[in-house]
Computed example of a mutant assay.
Amino acid sequence: MIYNSLVKTLLFQLDAERAHDLTYQFAQKVSDSSFLQAVARAIYNYQSPKLSQNIWGLTFKNPIGLAAGFDKNGKIPRAMEATGFGFVEVGSITGDPSIGNPRPRMFRLPKDRAVINRMGLNNDGAKTVVKRLKNKKISIPLGINIAKTHDSSVMGDRAIQDYIHSFHEAKKIADYITINISCPNTEEGKTFEDPKALNELLSGLNIRGDARMLPTLVKISSDLSKAELMKLLQVCEEHRVHGYVACNTSSKRDNLMTNSSVLDKIGTGGLSGPPIAEKSIQIIQWISKATNGQKPIIGVGGIDSFSTALKMMLAGADLLQVYTGLIYEGPSLIKDINRQLVKELKELNVDTIHQLVTAAEL
Rank of each mutant, 00 (worst) to 15 (best):
S225Y: 13
Y24G: 00
F35L: 10
S153R: 15
A42F: 05
I177G: 03
E278F: 06
N259I: 05
T59G: 01
L198E: 07
I55Y: 04
N54M: 08
A290I: 05
D254Y: 07
A174Q: 01
G325N: 05
N206W: 00
A147C: 11
I76N: 07
R41S: 14
F26H: 08
D112F: 08
L36D: 06
K50P: 09
Q234N: 15
L232V: 08
S98A: 15
E344K: 15
D210N: 14
G95C: 10
I266F: 09
G69H: 05
R208M: 03
G267Q: 06
S251H: 05
S332P: 01
F192R: 02
H354A: 13
D124R: 14
D175E: 07
Y3C: 05
D351R: 15
M312G: 07
I287A: 10
A309H: 09
K137V: 13
M230Q: 12
G57I: 02
K226Q: 14
K75V: 09
Q294C: 09
I287L: 08
D223F: 12
M257V: 08
S48F: 01
K29S: 10
N248H: 11
K231N: 14
F192M: 06
R339T: 07
E361T: 14
T308K: 13
S34W: 00
S280I: 03
C247M: 11
F70T: 09
S31K: 05
I297H: 06
N122K: 13
D304L: 04
I220G: 06
E228P: 00
I164F: 06
S5A: 04
I116H: 02
N4T: 04
A40I: 02
D223K: 02
S92M: 04
I164V: 14
R158V: 02
Y328F: 14
T9H: 05
M155A: 09
Y328V: 00
R208C: 04
L333Y: 03
G156L: 09
A170H: 01
G269Q: 01
P141D: 13
A159E: 11
I334L: 12
L58D: 00
Y244F: 15
I93Q: 02
F35N: 04
T308S: 07
K172H: 06
E17I: 11
T324C: 06
I220Q: 08
L310I: 11
N259T: 05
Y3H: 03
L51Q: 08
R105H: 10
Y176E: 07
Q340E: 15
G316T: 09
G267A: 08
I298P: 06
L348P: 04
G301F: 07
G209A: 10
K196P: 00
K171Y: 01
N349M: 12
K289T: 10
A68M: 09
D112R: 00
L356H: 13
L345Y: 12
T216R: 06
M213D: 01
C236F: 12
F87I: 03
E81W: 00
L205C: 06
